[in-house]
Each structure stands twice: as structure tokens, then as C-alpha cells.
Amino acid sequence: MGTTHNYETTDVALAKLHLLGYVIDFNVEFDEIANDADHYQIDHLYRYEGDSNPDDESTVYGISNLKNGKKGVFVAGNLSIIEGKKRDIILNLEIKYRKSNNG
């Protein structure tokens, strides 16, 4: 845990995470996280910031389930435009990730 990558693009980050077994698309299958958020953690975090346009910013999360080992990715642009519960869960997972890597 605690890996932040600096890939050239979001697509490269997704491809690398896929090779590491992060195959579930949690953007589509988010209910799995929502129903059991306490058993999920962020293992990999990648932020891509566009050179000039803030709309080009995105974050790729490599997320795993501590209980059953399932791994997948969640991709977000601006978290403030994501619906409430989904945004809150991702932010809480990111807070736990940052605390475990800085404390």
C-alpha cells in the first residue's frame, strides 16, 4: 500500500493497475464498495493534472477489499461534481490512505 505513481496519462495508469490485478471497474460497480466501505482501502493513487486546462485533471484510485481480496479502479475528475454518497466514500478512503502514508 502507499504507492503514488506518476504515469504520463490516465490510460497508462489504468493499464498498469490492470496488470497488477485491479480489474473491477468501480465506477460501474460502486455498490460493492458502498455496501461494505469499511473493508476497502486505496492501495494506489495517481493524479494526472493537465498542463493548462483544469478539465484535464483526473485521479485514478487502485482500490482493494481487505476481506475478500477483490481489486479494482475508480476514476474521478473533479470529486465535487460526484454525487454525495459516492463522493463521501471516496474522500473517506483517501483520508485513510493519506493518514496511513503520512503517519
Rank of each mutant, 00 (worst) to 15 (best):
Y40H: 00
S58M: 12
L79A: 13
G72T: 05
G84P: 09
Y61K: 11
E29P: 00
K70E: 13
H5I: 07
E32V: 02
G103V: 06
G72V: 03
V75L: 03
N78T: 07
F26K: 01
T3S: 15
S100W: 08
D25K: 05
Y7H: 09
Y22C: 00
V28S: 10
I81R: 11
E57C: 15
L19T: 05
H39G: 04
K67A: 15
N27R: 12
N53Y: 13
G21P: 06
E29V: 00
R47V: 11
H39F: 05
L66D: 06
D25V: 00
H5S: 12
N6R: 13
G69P: 14
Y22D: 00
I63L: 15
E57K: 15
L79S: 02
M1G: 08
I63P: 09
S58L: 15
D55F: 10
L91V: 09
N78A: 06
D43T: 12
S64N: 07
Q41C: 05
M1E: 08
L20T: 05
S80C: 07
E94P: 01
N102V: 06
S100V: 03
T9M: 01
A13V: 07
N68H: 14
S100R: 09
Y97Q: 04
E32N: 07
S58D: 15
E57S: 15
G21Y: 08
S80H: 10
S100C: 01
D11F: 06
G69W: 15
K86L: 05
D55Q: 11
V60E: 13
Y7W: 08
Y97F: 02
Y7C: 06
E32W: 02
I63F: 13
N101D: 07
P54Y: 08
